[in-house]
Computed example of a mutant assay.
Amino acid sequence: MTAPPAPSLEPAVHVAGLRRTYAGRTALHHLDLTVPAGSLTALIGPNGSGKTTTMRLLLGLDRPDAGTGTVLGAPLHRPARYLTKVGALIEQPALYTRLTGRTNLRVLSRLAGVDDAHISRALQLTGMDQQADRPVATYSLGMRQRLGIAAALLTEPRLLILDEPTNGLDPLGTAQLRRLLRTLTSDGVTVLISSHQLNELDATCDHFVFLHQGTTLFQGDRNALGASQRPSVEAAPEHPTQLPELADAFTEAGYRARRHEDHLLVDTAAGRAGDLNRTAAAHGITLARLAVRRPTLEEAFFSLVGQGPQSATEDAGSAGTSQGPHPC
């Protein structure tokens, strides 16, 4: 990559009131989105929530029916002013399967008017340099995905937009992508990414946007996300057979305790952990674990939607589970 741009207080993306309707179906309804410059932002929501539509609007592949905004400081309705500084992979990459990976990138570099030196850099960054001279027809799905990301990096963009980039990647490829994205943001590149792998977004991203039914539920950094959620503490007895007894003890003390695998989730602030410990001790129960718990992205999403995930934790003593859409 070239030298990172000077830090800017202006967000890489800032749009407000985006609306897009297809054949009477509203895909986006007054959507607001801010992507801080230099951030690694996750776009999260169920299928049909508007993630891909939002990315297509930012890339000028579609036009909003209403709404305003800027991308890299240029007006959203003038995509030609900013697209030369944007790289993207939306859905599956379009590749010539009879050509080698390197030749595919050479064709794209000619179309983009960039130097061939960028090809080697993009191949190295994505870990495809050793496979670049094989025909794309011999590539696995994950290899094609990585070549598509290499193509998105050819122009050394300031903004990188990736829709499901982990599709087809094995654990090694996913780890390589995580390192790549962190390298890019350390160089000043802004990354906007969507993925079905919420645990990977949780481990990688520093800014989060939740979409639901075409509108914005939440956007902010990890601290803001944590502050928006109900605090909880994990508590596990030394002897697993005492879990029901521990749940009853917490309930009698006025806490809401939910069973989750081999421990309880107790709805209370971290500062009350000492009280939980004393409650357990008063009932003759020794705790093997007592720790503040940060909600996962999936749990945060369902909390904001007001529904429970299909595999949600259960209230202590209850066998039922609530149903809801998976936030993919």
Rank of each mutant, 00 (worst) to 15 (best):
T216W: 03
A122W: 04
I193K: 05
S194M: 04
S232M: 15
L265T: 12
P7H: 06
D62H: 08
S228N: 02
L61I: 13
S186L: 12
A249S: 07
V266R: 09
L160I: 01
V13T: 07
L40M: 05
M143W: 10
S8K: 09
L72T: 15
L201A: 03
A74K: 11
A150H: 03
P4R: 10
V209D: 02
C328V: 09
P11E: 02
P75Q: 00
F210Q: 00
R134F: 01
A203N: 09
G48F: 04
R293K: 15
R56G: 08
R293W: 13
G254C: 10
T174D: 06
V189M: 14
G17R: 13
I90G: 03
R110E: 15
R102I: 06
P309W: 05
T54H: 00
G48P: 11
L108T: 14
A132W: 02
V266N: 05
E91Q: 03
L89E: 05
E299F: 02
P165S: 02
L105Q: 10
T68M: 01
Y22P: 02
L147Y: 00
A3M: 13
V266C: 03
Y255I: 09
C328P: 00
H326C: 07
D62W: 06
T54L: 03
M143C: 13
H239A: 13
F301E: 04
L287D: 06
R63Y: 12
P93L: 01
I193P: 11
L147G: 05
T190H: 07
E252K: 14
S39P: 00
A281D: 02
Q124N: 11
A253R: 10
A270H: 08
